[in-house]
Design a binder for these strands. Structure first.
Lengths: 369, 369
DNA sequence: CTGTTAGCGCATTCAG
DNA sequence: CTGAATGCGCTAACAG
């Protein structure tokens, strides 16, 4: 029972010790181009030209023969081999923090849609917001010679991680890969950037316009740029209306539904206890958690406490009360990112596509007090 | 302007006409094994042995030299080339109907978790339940020489599509690939099979036990096996208690949130109009849509109409009223499927892992009438 | 242990 | 337009 776990030091992803995995594809039930060529009575080259989608220089008759042989044999090109020979593959990598989170799922769906339309294969990874896994996946995509890479999710304050990522991305782009980020413009790559500051500021003003005066903010994780930007924007918006947000009214926590639940619980023990306060969770997922907490605590929303979020995730349409939020075109953002990633880019410098958020005032912040 | 669209007949995915895409990786900023070997002053073979994770036959000193050279050069193995040489890749394909649907997202997350743990790359596709796209993706995975494939989602009644899929899967497994399905056992491959009939039957009995006597079923799409199984089970469960479910009380519709919304709307115009009826939507996503519809119509749940679903998707914890359902261990199902896919399988025939559902009675079916 | 030499399956020059 | 030959980057026998 010794040497239970054997770890390689080969960096990421750790090259696993090959065990009884068959070295070679079991039997040769795999049809190869040569087989097709033989059956069609043509040379390997012509078969390749016909089946490889080469700029047509095909010969009418032979062309058909090859096609027929291919279908008869159930031939399917070995994409790996093709990629090696061609030097490029049709893979697009996608990184999200959490695929179960509707925010990321929706953006990912948008990315995939245009990827498929461009007949690309999508490799997806869900990193749990772990910068190490993100880095590892980028390295993996470089190794896979993926043609493009879309990084979805907020950047962090971790300077070291960011530097490492930047370096890895550099190597990747230098090798010909295209990178697009959905989030903040700090990686030196094309970016689809939600206007978090402006959106939060608009929201704050709108809430004040509704009659709110007291606020508590569930700010998410300290190191996340989105979180910081939205808090800053919100604070600025309040300041515009002469309201000051004190640090003690900002409650950090994980960027998840449960994080929102817990943070709301903490808030209930403090400022929120006196009711008639508006709670702003910096993303909808947390806001939904907060709503659940308030419901469990028997607090009426918006009767006693108002709640607002950010993102307008699809889930919101089934939450009660309807949540006020700042809507982001998530699916479209994904599409745009993918399109950017597929477009050649050329020599023009990193483009930033700003995405404006739209304030949506719904029942959760209707002020009855 | 002629030949606007040129379609290849090469089967799926259509080999796209290469246009101005650079034939070869732009410059040679890509470090190759040969470069590393050269810099380390060793042969290609040794470099490969060190970096390729070969069964250690390395030489102490050279080993370090190679590692150093690799890191200095920022070397990253070309996985495509490796796959070609090895005859096997570390890719795992995953097919889901809709990645935004929490049911699929949760299962996919489970699959990915064990895939990553096994340091595999995951290629994901969201097919919108289109059998054609599913087939295309399987073909693609065969072309990619993916090592394993996980098909998540109900099978359909479309015999032709099923046959084609079976054929393609046959070619894939014959080439050495492993396939696992999460759904029904009709493909002749290993299957993680939720006990849909039993679960629905248990639910029906439980609901009758709660005092319900009148039922309407939102049955989803006609051709989907899950839908049919759950309806059948539900009907059987009612029959066990001497209650008959007439066909006119079964309302079909899309397997989505909006589908549930609309179907519920139809039901409201019919049987449901007289209230005091229990509505069973064959999956939670539809049930959530139905709840929204009832809410919009001013119907109290469960005060006037009761609602039950199936799956216990995570979203449910934030829905009001809490929805009665049949819980399936979605994440774990994904993990199991992936593990099955990675395990060698050997010669033993397709295994079926039955997954029992657990009835969860919550507020949405509490009978106050 | 280490280096030499063949391939892997395909694309693509270069002749014919 | 077609075929023969070379190479892509790497692994895996095979010899030293």
């Amino acid at each position: 029972m010794r040497t239970l776990a054997r770890v390689t030091d080969d960096g990421v992803p750790a090259a696993r010790q090959r065990q009884r995995r068959p070295r070679r594809r079991s039997d040769d039930a795999v049809v190869t181009l040569a087989d097709v060529a033989a059956r069609a009575g043509v040379s390997l080259a012509t078969a390749s030209r016909v089946l490889g989608g080469s700029t047509r220089v095909v010969g009418g008759a032979l062309r058909d023969a090859v096609h027929q042989a291919a279908t008869e044999l159930g031939y399917r090109a070995n994409l790996q081999a093709r990629a090696v020979a061609r030097g490029t593959s049709d893979t697009m990598g996608v990184v999200v923090h959490d695929i179960v989170d509707p925010y990321f799922a929706t953006i990912a769906a948008g990315v995939m849609e245009v990827a498929y339309a461009g007949s690309m294969v999508v490799s997806l990874t869900s990193t749990s917001a772990d910068t190490g896994r993100e880095l590892a996946f980028v390295a993996l995509m470089r190794a896979q010679h993926a043609r493009a890479l879309v990084l979805v999710g907020s950047r962090t304050d971790d300077a070291r991680a960011t530097d490492e990522l930047r370096a890895e991305l550099g190597a990747y782009t230098r090798a010909g890969g295209r990178v697009v980020c959905v989030g903040q413009d700090v990686l030196g790559v094309d970016t689809v950037r939600p206007q978090n500051v402006d959106g939060a500021r608009d929201l704050a003003r709108a809430l004040v316009g509704q009659g709110h005066r007291d606020f508590v903010v569930l700010s998410g994780p300290a190191g996340l740029h989105v979180a910081r930007d939205r808090v800053a924007g919100f604070r600025a918006g309040l300041a515009d209306r002469g309201i000051e947000l004190s640090d003690s009214d900002i409650i950090p926590g994980p960027f998840t539904r449960d994080g929102g639940y817990e943070a709301a619980g903490l808030a209930l023990g403090g400022r929120l206890a006196r009711r008639h306060v508006c709670l702003f969770a910096v993303n909808d997922v947390m806001a939904v958690g907060a709503l659940a907490c308030l419901r469990a605590a028997g607090v009426d929303v918006p009767g006693q406490i108002a709640v607002a979020g950010f993102d307008d995730i699809p889930t919101l349409q089934d939450i009660t009360p309807p949540l006020s939020t700042v809507a982001l075109p998530l699916h479209r953002m994904g599409e745009m990112a993918a399109r950017l990633a597929l477009r050649d880019g050329g020599e023009d410098h990193p483009r930033v596509v700003p995405i404006a958020g739209q304030v949506l005032l719904r029942q959760s912040t209707a002020v009855p007090w």
